[in-house]
Each structure stands twice: as structure tokens, then as C-alpha cells.
Design a protein around this nucleic acid. Structure first.
Lengths: 114, 114
DNA sequence: TCAACTCTTCAAGAAGGATTGAAATATTTC
DNA sequence: GAAATATTTCAATCCTTCTTGAAGAGTTGA
């Protein structure tokens, strides 16, 4: 996770609709949800939902797959873990007490992608 | 950490200048840096630096204290830990593998403020 | 193939954030 | 008190993002 990607992910998360989308998809798990189900739950117009899902997918935070008529969206655990790792990497650099609240025994330098 | 605060923190972090500011201040530690030193290091105009530091302080990510003529800024470890905890809370809800990359042995539900 | 369903794309307008330079405020030193 | 230093505030401009509604494209079943 480099700075441009972290910035893209943070920008995508810095929106109430998309933050709710990510939370819903993470809670749902790898199976994901059909766009129509998401639209019904969050009361979003199709175009608005598509716009925000595309932003999240572009940022590497969700993945999509078509199944028949429906397109299912799921949280991208690699992207989510990456941006969290980038934040923890910054936070813990020389000052592990910063992130002690949420990761008391985490290693200081998080894993990087290959 | 509630949703509006997390959103404010993520919005503040979703900017290249502010992300660099936070990284610099976290690496510097509790002593912080004078605004003039930060401006010199990142080559920022005084008004631009002040604008971004105010945004970070408003979002609860940095703190400031005056010392003589200088105003020193330091990373707010509570705010940083809070937003990371909010992200991990969402990420780990029922799916601890999501944040395993950065906090392999962290507890699933992070601490909340009193 | 036609019709229904599902989702995306497009264009236009509205709203919020970033940068710049000048002016104002606060603090210390002479 | 006056000058110098350090930082903030303000207004104007530009740029990006968000929302909305209509139109387009892919998929399935009759």
C-alpha cells in the first residue's frame, strides 16, 4: 500500500454513504450483496448507488461479480486491510503506544503486499 | 468514536498534504513541531499550513500548544487511535480475518472512549 | 424476439474544499 | 513603545465531488 492508494482509499471512505456501504458489505461477508438489495436497505437511487460502488471498487475496497441478472458486491478484505495497515504503519512508527488502543499486541510493521 | 467523528477524521486524512502532516507529526512524537518548522520541511505557505493544521485539529487528529512565539503541533494519539479503532471495529465485525494482516492478535472489539 | 428486470453511463447543476495573497492578531526583543 | 517574528483570518477564485433524472446496455423468461 503506497501513498496514492492509501489516499484513494481514505477519500473513498470519507463519505457517509460509502462508509455505510463498506460497513454493510463487511458485515455481510464474502458472499456479498446484490446491488438491488443494497439499494433497498439504504434507500438509494440506482444511479447514486452505482456511482458510490464504482468509487469503492476503483479504490480497491470492494469487488463485484455478476450472477445472472444481479451484480453482487463484497468488501475487498485485502484493500481494507491494506489501508488499515498503512495507517497503523504510520501510527506505530517509533511510537507503538499510538495504536495500543486497538491493536495491543500487533506487530509494529504491518505486512506489505508482495 | 461515532460515525460523524470517524467521517470527519477520514475526511481530514483524505488529503495528501494533511496525510503527510499527520505522518510527520506522528513520527515526531509528543513533543510536536513548530508550525514554522513544518512549513519549512514541507515547503508550504503559512496560510496553507494553517488551513490544513486547523482542519486536522478540528477533526481531533492533532493538538496544539503555544510556546513563546511558536505554536507546536503534535499528533493526537487518542483521535488517531479512535479512527483506527472505528475502522477495525467495522472490519472485524464477524470477520476477524479482514484485519489479521495488521493486527494478528488484536482483540476484535476495540476500546471505546468512556 | 419481445418484454421485464437489473444495473450503468451520461450530462447538468449545486455544493463543498483547496489555494493564493493580503491584512490582522499575538508575542517577544530592542 | 516600535519593530520583528510567528501564525491566523479573510476574500476571491478554481477545482472536484455529489446528486438527479433520463437514456443505454446486459440478462433472463415467455
Amino acid at each position: 500500500m503506497d501513498q496514492p492508494r492509501a489516499l484513494a482509499a481514505l477519500s473513498a471512505l470519507a463519505n457517509a454513504t460509502r462508509l455505510e456501504l463498506v460497513r454493510m458489505l463487511v458485515a455481510t461477508g464474502p458472499a456479498g450483496l446484490a446491488a438491488s438489495d443494497i439499494a433497498a436497505r439504504l434507500v438509494l437511487s440506482p444511479s447514486r448507488l452505482s456511482f458510490h460502488l464504482a468509487a469503492l471498487e476503483q479504490a480497491g475496497l470492494v469487488t463485484s461479480r455478476r450472477a445472472s441478472r444481479n451484480i453482487f458486491y463484497a468488501a475487498d478484505t485485502r484493500g481494507l486491510g491494506g489501508v488499515i495497515g498503512y495507517l497503523l504503519e504510520d501510527c506505530c512508527a517509533g511510537h507503538p503506544e499510538v495504536c495500543a488502543c486497538c491493536a495491543p499486541t500487533a506487530r509494529v510493521t504491518p505486512a506489505r503486499e508482495p
